[in-house]
Design a protein around this nucleic acid. Structure first.
Length: 803
RNA sequence: GCGGAUGUGGCGGAAUUGGCAGACGCGCUAGACUUAGGAUCUAGUGUCCCCGACAUGCAGGUUCGAUUCCUGUCAUCCGCACCA
């Protein structure tokens, strides 16, 4: 027998699969479709991370198993290739991002092929390919035409040194990552998408899909629906401010009002203030901080009083002070709050710091001067006029009714979700296909002119005033208005990387279609994606964005389903050997090329599945990888113990049937680590016996095939009875042969284990209890005590309770 | 700060959904084979005061019985809207 030579075997089978074209999915098949999807990678310059194959192997196992179960399986791959790192690399090295992208994709392709994934390479898509982004632009135009795209002034990070806009990632501790200069917030007009219009549906329709629970809760919380009220406060100047509150029941306890520093009323009031200088200074400081910093640093509250103007509490008619503070965000609610320090802990902190009155209006908690009482489930209204004696639950609708009757407030549902900032002042993204005409305003580029391709330019740096690099392509910018034929200019902003990844799963269904993003028949046949696996970190952005686009496409009749993905699961991260996140700077990066070269793709795949619970992050271990290699070698060496029998041997048929049942089920539940443990145990059983029949060996090889496809194909070629294992039927098990005739029963006394007894599996309850009481060690434990009761769980245990 | 998760031997982890804690692998120990071993095979391996007791971050609670359920607490990780 030859030694296990993974290098030869893996090369051989990768070529055979390619020649046989056996992983290609046909659109006009009679078979039932199955669509397995992994998040397509961003082809970075670093090449594949060992984290990628974790997700890809997991769904490769599913895809391979489904094929063996007779499905027409679509398991596609592509490239999410627009993005910042490529652009920055291009700027630094003065290469066109297109060239960098091409090189990176070639490297990724080589690495993915070396790992033996059963991707349908004929359906490869690339978001930077004009024939792809033609349809990204087309979808944007439909959004625009349906009023879901609009322009708005939004803050951007502005580097005072480089004089360019920066992404959040490029801002480190408030300074520019590249030059170290101070970063401030600047306002710029940006394209926005109205995802908020879909907020309610994005929550509701989670009921109809099979997403893991934490994805659902995280999305629901991110969308952040809250029911509350808007209340109008009149100022001593006669102006009016509307605040949003979820606790309008506490209005009698509102002892001051807080505006966000950007609130428009602040500007208006500024000339009337006694301390205008101080207020202006506070606004200036707040402008430097990002929203994240503000909420993070909000432990120690800061603020400034608008000295010289007060608000009037509409129910007590008392004058109360107005503050600005950066713990109030302009982007949420109305950008203004009524502060009730007795019943909100943030307000309480602020009130303590600024010595403001704290008035209890809900009783039932501790002294409100010591801490805020925020419970809404118990407590009674006090000091609250007509609300006195009510519970919080009763007081809220009563107050809303009062406010609505007086015309100074109304019920209001708010969402934390904000509209999607869709503009980037960057080169390496899809051009936004709009032109601006003095006469006609923003006009869409005719669909017949799509794709609107990126212009060729020499340098890719952002412009001086925070403009996109496209602003330098003067020939490209100046155009005519598609509507009136007059002079017009193109939009120079590009789309965010999220755009192309919001609909790529649709393109896979029909990737070469020039007439539509995909044909109706292809969409109907494949939709929705049956199983989508990806990282938890994409839950609130990518996953939500693509659900939003899909719902819009459903509304305009392009796609046949309300939701894009039927099932969503998530993998954990693979950390460095030291338990920290893998990164170049930490020096703990594992290179897939090296480990595949040393141990083979099958061993790497097996280890990535065996490494730990699939949804948990876990450190890499070269020793562990070696253990998996050893396991494959043991599978290989079983050839020496092979007997010619096609049958299962009597003493192992239970173990084999149990393994089929357990492994089949574990793959479905993504419990890959225990599936592999089961196969390891089976191999141990074979070794213990010293021989294995051909029939047993075939089942082992078939069960292992989805995880380690190369070695198992090689062994199948020698001992199987069909041409390709990949096209062979998945094994069934005999249910009767998965149950043991005798079971071991645990006997406890007062919950402590005293003995174990072996009994027939169908033993009667009374009989079992009798046998349990008879056990030697149990007798000893019962000596001199009274039996109170006996709890019996058939097939498991007997617990004797004594006194 | 807000939202989501996690915590079990020396290490990665397992435990059919409240019923034998530690499957499987790594590491370690001993033996066999060997000129040799960072190869292979076999046996052992939670801790201790070892016929018994104690052990699933910590402190309580519910239960005949808790890694699993509840309350509190500590620690770590992920996301926070222009990274992908």
């Amino acid at each position: 027998m030859d030694k296990y030579n993974f290098k030869e075997i893996e090369k051989k089978w990768q070529k055979k699969w390619e020649d046989a074209n056996c992983f290609h999915a046909e659109n006009d098949s009679e078979k039932e479709p199955y669509y397995a999807l992994i998040e397509f990678p961003y082809p970075s310059g670093q090449g594949l991370h060992v984290g990628h194959p974790r997700s890809y192997t997991a769904l490769d196992i599913l895809a391979r198993k489904r094929r063996m179960q007779g499905y027409n399986v679509l398991y596609p791959i592509g490239w999410d290739a627009f993005g910042l790192p490529t652009e920055n690399y291009a700027i630094k090295n003065k290469i066109h991002p297109k060239i960098v992208t091409k090189k990176n994709i070639e490297n990724f392709t080589r690495q993915l092929k070396m790992l033996g994934f059963s991707f349908d390479w004929q359906r490869e898509v690339n978001t930077t390919d004009p024939s792809y982004y033609k349809w990204t632009q087309w979808i944007f135009l439909q959004l625009f035409k349906h009023g879901l795209a609009y322009k708005q002034e939004m803050p951007i990070n502005w580097c005072t040194g480089c004089k360019v806009g920066l992404s959040n990632e490029e801002v480190v501790n408030g300074v520019c990552e590249r030059c170290g200069s101070e970063v401030v917030q600047r306002r710029k007009s940006q394209w926005m998408l109205k995802i908020t219009e879909y907020a309610q549906r994005l929550i509701d329709d989670l009921d109809d899909v099979d997403f893991i629970e934490r994805v659902k809760t995280q999305q629901t919380n991110w969308i952040g629906r809250s029911e509350g009220a808007e209340v109008e406060f009149t100022l001593t100047t006669g102006d009016k401010i509307t605040v949003y509150t979820t606790r309008c029941d506490t209005l009698f306890g509102a002892t001051y009002v807080v505006l966000s520093p950007e609130h428009s009323m602040v500007k208006k009031l500024l000339p009337m203030l006694k301390n205008a200088d101080q207020v202006e200074k506070y606004i200036e400081n707040a402008a430097k901080k990002s929203e994240f910093e503000r909420t993070e640093l909000a432990k120690d509250k800061t603020g400034a009083r608008l000295d010289g103007v007060n608000a009037i509490n509409p129910v007590t008619n008392e004058e109360i002070p107005i503050f600005i503070s950066d713990y109030v965000l302009v982007t949420y609610g109305t950008g203004a709050i009524m502060a009730v320090p007795a019943h909100d802990s943030r307000d309480w902190d602020f009130a303590k710091k600024f010595n403001l009155p704290i008035i209890e209006v809900v009783s039932g908690g501790k002294n409100v001067l010591e801490e805020a009482y925020t419970d809404v489930t118990s407590g009674t209204m006090v000091n609250s006029g007509f609300l006195n004696g009510m519970s919080v639950k009763e007081a809220i609708p009563a107050m809303i009714k009062y406010l609505e009757e007086k015309g100074i407030g109304k019920k209001k549902v708010n969402f934390k979700l904000r509209d999607w900032v869709f503009s980037r002042q960057r080169y390496w993204g899809e051009p936004i296909p709009l032109v601006y005409c003095e006469k006609c305003g923003w006009v869409p580029v005719p669909e017949s002119e799509l794709p609107l391709e990126l212009p060729e330019i020499d340098t890719f740096e952002p412009g001086e005033n925070g403009e996109s690099p496209l602003a330098k392509a003067t020939d490209w910018i100046n155009t005519t208005c598609p509507k009136c034929g007059g002079k017009a200019v193109r939009e120079t902003d590009t789309m965010p990387q999220w755009a192309g990844s919001s609909w790529y799963y649709l393109r896979y269904m029909d990737p070469h279609n020039n007439e539509a993003l995909a044909s109706d028949s292809a969409l109907k046949y494949w939709s929705p994606v049956d199983w989508y696996n990806g990282g938890m970190e994409h839950t609130t952005l990518h996953l939500l964005y693509s659900r939003f686009w899909h719902k819009f496409l459903y509304d305009i009749g392009v796609v046949p389903t309300k939701e894009p993905y039927q099932k969503r699961t998530s993998h954990g991260m693979i950390l460095g050997e030291n338990g920290e996140k893998m990164s170049k700077s930490r020096g703990n990066v594992v290179n897939p090329d090296e480990v595949v070269n040393d141990y083979g793709a099958d061993a790497v795949r097996t280890f990535e599945m065996f490494i730990g619970a699939f949804d948990q992050s876990t450190p890499w271990s070269e020793k562990g990888l070696k253990g998996c290699y050893k396991f494959l070698e043991r599978v290989w060496n079983l050839q020496e113990m092979l007997t010619p029998s096609e049958e299962l041997s009597k003493d192992l048929e239970k173990a084999v049937n149990k393994a089929i049942m357990k492994v089949s089920d574990d793959y479905e539940k993504m419990k890959y680590n225990t599936a592999i443990a089961t196969l390891m145990s089976l191999v141990n059983d074979f070794y213990k016996k010293g021989e294995v029949t051909k029939g047993e060996y075939r089942i082992l090889i078939t069960l292992l095939n989805p995880v380690a496809p190369h070695i198992t194909e090689e062994l199948w070629e020698k001992y199987g009875n069909t041409p390709l294992l990949a096209l062979t039927k998945w094994p069934d098990f005999d249910k009767a042969k998965t149950v043991d005739d005798e079971v071991e029963i645990v006997v406890q006394v007062n919950g402590k284990i005293k003995d174990k007894i072996t009994v027939p599996k169908d033993i009667a309850k009374e009989e079992l209890e009798k046998v349990a009481l008879d056990a030697e060690k149990v007798k000893q434990a019962l000596d001199g005590k009274t039996v109170i009761k006996i709890i019996t769980v058939p097939g498991k245990l007997v617990n004797i309770v004594v006194k």
